[in-house]
Structures are given as C-alpha cells and as structure tokens.
Computed example of a mutant assay.
Amino acid sequence: MSEKFVSSTAPEPVGLYPHARRVGHLLFLSGVGPRKKGSKDIPGVTLDADGNITDYCIETQCRSVFDNVRAILEESGSNWDQLVDVQVFLTNMKDDFKTYNKIYAEYFADNQPCRTTIEISSLPTPIAIELKCIATIYDE
C-alpha cells in the first residue's frame, strides 16, 4: 500500500513530488525547507533584487523547517515523536552547525531519531537548511 500526502499548511513543493508518501507503516517525507505556504518569502533570509542571499539567520530557518516538518507529519497521520531518521542538509556547516545543533537539541530533547548532517554547496531555493525525514505511522 502506498499513499501520497500534500499538506494544506506546509510550503508548496518546488517540483513534482508530494510532501510525504506512506508505504506500510513508514512515512517518507520529501525534502522540507523553511519557506512558508503561499509566499515566496523565506523566514530568516534576505535576498537582493536578483534573488541572491545577502543575509540569513540559521536559527530562524531551523525553527521554520522543524515547524514545517511537524505540520506535514501531523497532516499525514504521524507525529514528531514517531520520527526515526532525519537527514539534514546545510549549506554552511562551518558557520551554522553550532546554532543548528542547539536548536535541534531543543526540538528533539525527548525523541532522538537517527540523524545525518551533510554539507552541500546549495539547495534548489535560496535556503541554508533542508530536512529529509522518515517516521512511523500506524492506523488507530
């Protein structure tokens, strides 16, 4: 059994993919960034006229990403405590890891899924962080 989910509150996907896909008792989330639904504005990001990042706040972006992940999980029938694996993509590990790790610890104090953090040169939109997650999901 496979079922696709598109959140009514998370930012629209930037390509042809669902926010999440359920396969059996697992929920796979597509990459989730800090954008807000229905807006081109990115929390914690300042862009110039050409769309290039001139300044950003990794703390604001982290909180927004985590909130978007939570919304997708809940609308898909799972929840934060059912996350089992989180892949984090950062565009600036050197400058952002310490702050990201601090915010991550706040959000994941109780549930501690497996985690991999990877530095990449860029993401499809002008953001500094994206999460790819796997959670469990059970019918009631």
Rank of each mutant, 00 (worst) to 15 (best):
Y17G: 08
I42N: 08
T9G: 03
C57S: 15
T54E: 15
N92V: 00
L131M: 13
K94M: 10
H19D: 15
S39Y: 00
N52A: 10
P34A: 09
I103D: 08
Q61S: 11
P11N: 08
E130S: 15
G77C: 11
S7V: 02
F89Y: 12
D67K: 07
V45L: 05
D139V: 05
L16V: 08
L73V: 01
M93Q: 08
K102P: 01
P126W: 03
L26I: 12
A71V: 00
L131P: 00
A128E: 02
G51L: 12
S30M: 05
M93S: 07
Y138P: 10
L73I: 03
N111Q: 11
L131I: 00
T54Y: 01
L16R: 12
Q112N: 13
N52G: 08
K102Y: 12
G33P: 11
R115T: 12
P126M: 09
P11L: 04
V84M: 11
K4I: 09
N79E: 14
A71D: 14
L123R: 03
C57H: 11
D139W: 05
A128Y: 04
H19L: 02
T46P: 02
G15V: 01
E106C: 06
E75I: 04
D110V: 04
R63W: 01
W80I: 00
G31D: 14
G51M: 11
G51D: 11
L16M: 12
S30A: 14
L131Q: 09
S8F: 10
V88I: 09
L29C: 06
L123T: 02
V23G: 13
I129R: 05
F66S: 02
P43R: 07
L27Y: 05
W80Q: 04
T125M: 15
I42P: 06
C133A: 11
D55A: 15
L83A: 06
A109P: 02
I129G: 07
D139C: 11
N68S: 05
A135P: 07
